[in-house]
């Protein structure tokens, strides 16, 4: 499984008829087992890029080569659960073939076991995010998209969820693309970091982290972060 992204441009017309360029030149390749991180300022077009990669927006210039039969799992920025279905139903509707054991294990890792029969309206944002995560993993995706899965959670909660995501990502050979604007999350979860410019977005710098995620210790993470913070991204 492989994803080849070669977008040469994306723009849309505003209500006033003016043309806005959102994406400039975004080219990268993602391989199975790899976690790519899109890192960039707010509003730089990351979500637009994700929508294109997810096949939700076909109106762009360029080309994306997906392996045939690729299964997509997506965690949107807002959980986008069906409020009229329970937690378990939400997962099963997206993944009707998931077996009970897999589902139980998934709920166990994400600490959702007691919430199986709750409705999304009864959950906090953190819990709803984890349900969205469970749904994306339950379909056993070949390509996983995570759009700021840790945003607007407090530090302790974000840290726990980050560890849970790391566990789940390691449990399956798939391509993962994570969007974040938190450097710490990027360095802890990613294998390759794509630094994006402000709008219209293009890739300024690609950082490959050689050490596997599991053995990446605190000193190494701090060192990588230190080096990255010295990059003069504004003048690239």
């Amino acid at each position: 499984m492989q994803l080849e992204v070669n977008i040469t441009g994306k723009s849309f017309a505003s209500a006033a008829g003016k043309r806005h360029d959102v994406l400039d030149n975004v080219t990268f390749t993602l391989n199975a087992g790899e976690v790519g991180v899109l890192f960039g300022p707010s509003g730089c077009g990351k979500s637009t890029l994700l929508r294109i990669l997810a096949g939700l927006d076909a109106n762009y210039q360029g080309h994306i080569a997906r392996s045939p039969g690729m299964r997509l799992g997506m965690v949107f920025q807002e959980p986008r659960l069906l409020p009229w279905r329970t937690v378990e139903e939400n997962v099963r509707i997206a993944a009707p073939h998931v077996d009970d054991g897999t589902l139980s294990a998934l709920f166990e890792v994400l600490e959702l076991s007691v919430h199986r029969n709750h409705f999304p309206g009864e959950l906090s944002l953190g819990l709803a995010r984890r349900v969205a995560l469970a749904r994306a993993f339950a379909i056993e995706p070949d390509f996983l998209i995570l759009d700021e899965p840790l945003a607007s959670l407090d530090n302790a909660l974000a840290g726990r969820l980050r560890d849970q995501i790391a566990t789940l990502v390691a449990s399956r050979e798939m391509m993962t693309l994570l969007v974040t604007h938190d450097l710490d999350d990027a360095v802890r979860l990613g294998d390759r970091l794509f630094f994006l410019s402000p709008r219209p977005a293009r890739i300024l710098h690609v950082e490959t982290i050689a050490a596997p995620r599991a053995v990446r210790g605190e000193p190494e993470i701090d060192e990588i972060k230190r080096q990255l913070s010295q990059l003069d991204l504004a003048n690239m």
Partner: peptide
């Protein structure tokens, strides 16, 4: 929610029902 259904490739019938 339409986008969610598209991203997860829900078949038409299931998307309509749920």
């Amino acid at each position: 929610l339409d986008e969610m259904a598209t991203a997860f490739a829900l078949p038409r019938g299931r998307a309509f029902r749920h």
